[in-house]
């Protein structure tokens, strides 16, 4: 038992924090918001230069090994800058293929996903019908769906791969509140689908996705606190820095209390999955719900504590607030995850 980063993990954390702080600037994120929500240059340099896109995928499958703790470290750093990259797609689809794909599927897709040549998106798709290996139906709310080359869809008892270029697949993109990860509706009409091994694919997709979102939320929440602390020591009113007023500093303290719990949640869940602990599901549902709520709360405080400037388009506060909003509703909202926690602790409601 040693619930602290190893030297290697601390090094990865420092590397990715520096990478995203230097490259995922507000200017570039805003440019990406006008271009479908992905900074392709940033994603290419993340995949090619850092060599961390294969995290959580075994070396024999073309990944770099390591696990969910390292994935969380990366997602936390990416989230702290609201980076416009398809990390969630990789964390969900990549994990699903690695865990539930056959050799041919892994060979075809994992390489391009890890190198950044292909972008993946994944979604829960209970309405899809399969007939003779062909999928039909509509899948709403697919994050980064309009820029994806590959889709992973998870139904109630099956999971599939579908290539974006398939003639039976069409995508309608939507103007979305969080422009760094816009949602699309995917319609399938007899699309060619390759089945994944359902149970392991779904489990890996959930673990990768929930940890990615929870860690992004942690990084984002910490950034809202850091930036607001900075502002509160510079901004003067009544002849004092506003951060010296209790009404102000107590709210910042409350943010730190939540964020430290969120940090425990993310790394508890990541460790529990990596170690195959029996409490992994409890940890994942806890982390997703708690971190998403924490981020939303903190981003809301950031706006309020910045006053008028915090409500402007020019200031970055709304980027955090909107990302937090999307993380809250994505891959199961807080009430749903807490009901799963209740099922695990109390049992089914009768």
């Amino acid at each position: 038992m040693e619930f602290a980063f190893t030297e290697e993990q601390a090094m990865i954390a420092q590397t990715v924090q520096t990478f995203f702080a230097e490259n995922a600037t507000s200017e570039r994120t805003r440019a990406a918001m006008e271009a479908g929500g992905i900074d392709r240059e940033l994603w290419a340099s993340f995949c090619e230069e850092l060599g961390l896109s294969g995290i959580g995928i075994a070396e024999e499958d073309g990944g770099v090994g390591l696990g969910m703790v390292e994935l969380a470290i990366v997602a936390e750093a990416a989230g702290s800058q609201v980076s416009a990259i398809p990390l969630l797609g990789l964390a969900t689809a990549g994990q699903a293929i690695a865990a539930g794909g056959n050799i041919a599927q892994k060979e075809q897709w994992l390489g391009p996903l890890i190198s950044g040549e292909a972008i993946a998106a994944a979604a829960y798709a209970p309405a899809l019908k399969v007939e003779g290996g062909r999928l039909s139906g509509t899948v709403p709310f697919v994050a980064h769906g309009s820029l994806a080359d590959l889709f992973v869809f998870v139904g109630e008892d099956a999971a599939w791969l579908v290539a974006a270029e398939d003639a039976g697949l069409s995508v309608v993109s939507h103007t979305t509140m969080d422009q760094t990860r816009p949602l699309a509706t995917v319609t399938l009409e007899g699309a060619n689908a390759q089945a994944l091994n359902f149970a392991p694919a779904r489990e890996a997709l959930h673990a990768g996705g929930w940890i990615c979102l929870a860690a992004e939320a942690l990084g984002g929440a910490q950034a809202t606190l850091d930036r607001t602390v900075q502002y509160s020591t510079e901004r003067m009113q009544f002849g004092r820095p506003i951060g010296s007023f209790q009404a102000y500093k107590h709210r910042l303290a409350d943010m730190m209390v939540l964020i430290e719990q969120a940090r425990s949640a993310v790394y508890w869940a990541a460790c529990a999955v990596d170690e195959g602990a029996p409490e992994a599901q409890l940890a994942l549902h806890s982390a997703k719900s708690f971190c998403a709520d924490t981020y939303f709360e903190c981003a809301g405080h950031m706006i309020q504590l910045h006053g008028g400037i915090g409500f402007t388009w020019e200031h970055d506060a709304h980027l955090f607030f909107k990302r937090a909003t999307s993380i809250r509703s994505m891959m199961g909202d807080g009430d749903w995850h807490r009901e799963q926690v209740a099922r695990l602790t109390i049992g089914e409601a009768s």
């Binding site: 719990q261 425990s264 508890w268 806890s286 708690f290 009430d335 926690v341």
Partner: peptide, 16 residues
């Protein structure tokens, strides 16, 4: 159930 879940989550986060 939501409140018990919140308590359960909070207790685990205290531990970790």
């Amino acid at each position: 159930r939501q409140k018990i879940a919140r308590a359960e989550i909070g207790l685990n986060l205290m531990r970790y």
